[in-house]
Structure formats: structure tokens, C-alpha cells
Computed example of a mutant assay.
Amino acid sequence: MRFARQREADRTATAEDYVELIADLLREEGEARAVELARRMGVSQATVTATVGRLQRDGLVETKPYRGLFLTDAGRAMAEAAKARHDLVVRFLIAVGLDAETAEQDAEGLEHHASEKALVAFARFVAKAETDRA
């Protein structure tokens, strides 16, 4: 069971990373292109093409000829949830004493593998730490 959960978390992590990056590119640059995904993710164009194809089949991404990649409503929801979870994990890591740069780096892996119970505990800890600091 534990290994199956890990494999599913890895698949979900990839989808979340892609939709989050697509959302960032759309917001920052007005477009998301496969070549830019490959560059930022540090993977080949072929890897991006295969992953985007899976995201399309899963109903998270749409492609438009000569216009790049777009998120569906489901893709936008996944991107927003992934960003919120990432931000929570960063805030938690900073609250327990990590510097901001390390917290950002470490959150990239932790955000996808923390259970809902852990995230609730992180949120509770962060809320108390931020209240105590104020």
C-alpha cells in the first residue's frame, strides 16, 4: 500500500508541477510554450510532449495550434491547489527555522508527498507561530 501511494504521489507531482508552471507562464508571460516548459523543467522537448499529452488526456491542459498551452478549469484548480500547498509548506519550513531559500527548495519535494493530515498540522502550526510572532 505504501509503495502504491508513493507511485501515485509521483505521478500526481509531475502533473501538478506542469500545471503550476503553465499557470505561472500564462500569468507572467501571457503564454505557455512547450519549449519554455522544457527549459524551466530541465527536460527534453520529447518529455514535455509526452507529459502534455497525458495532461490533455486527463483533461487538465488544452493546446491550440500556434498559441501554446492553456489550462482547463480542472487544470487551473489543480494549479491553484498545488500553489497553496507549496506556499503552506514553505511557510511551515520557515516557521520551524529554515531560511527562505532552503524552504523554497525543500518544499518542491515535500509538497507532493505530505498527507492531508500533515498539511492540516502544518497549517495549525504556522497559524500559531504567526500569531505568536505578531
Score class of each variant (00 low, 15 high):
Y18L: 11
A82G: 09
V96T: 14
G42M: 02
G53Q: 03
V52L: 04
E31H: 14
R133I: 02
R2N: 04
G97V: 11
T12I: 00
E130D: 11
R76V: 11
Q105K: 15
K64N: 04
Q6T: 13
G30F: 14
G109A: 11
F3P: 08
A74G: 05
K128E: 10
P65Q: 03
A107M: 07
R5A: 15
R33F: 12
R124D: 14
A134T: 09
T72G: 01
E20Q: 13
E116P: 11
A84H: 11
L88W: 03
A13Y: 07
L69E: 08
D106P: 01
E16T: 11
R2V: 00
G75S: 05
T49F: 02
D10L: 10
L26S: 06
V48E: 05
D106Y: 13
V43N: 02
H113N: 07
T49G: 00
R54N: 06
E101F: 08
D58N: 11
E108K: 13
S44N: 03
G97D: 10
A82Q: 07
A84W: 09
V35E: 15
T102K: 15
D132E: 15
A34Q: 15
G59H: 00
A4K: 08
T51Y: 03
F3T: 10
R57A: 13
G42T: 01
A34W: 06
E111F: 00
E36Q: 08
R5N: 12
A127G: 10
Q6K: 13
G42A: 02
A77K: 06
Y66T: 05
D87P: 05
A82F: 09
L25S: 07
K128T: 09
V120A: 14
I22E: 02
F92Q: 04
E101C: 01
L26C: 03
R27I: 10
G68N: 03
L71A: 01
L69T: 07
A13R: 10
F122A: 08
F92H: 13
A100V: 11
A79H: 09
Q105D: 15
A114D: 08
A95M: 09
Q45H: 03
V61I: 02
A82L: 08
R124K: 12
K128M: 04
E20S: 15
A121T: 07
Y66L: 08
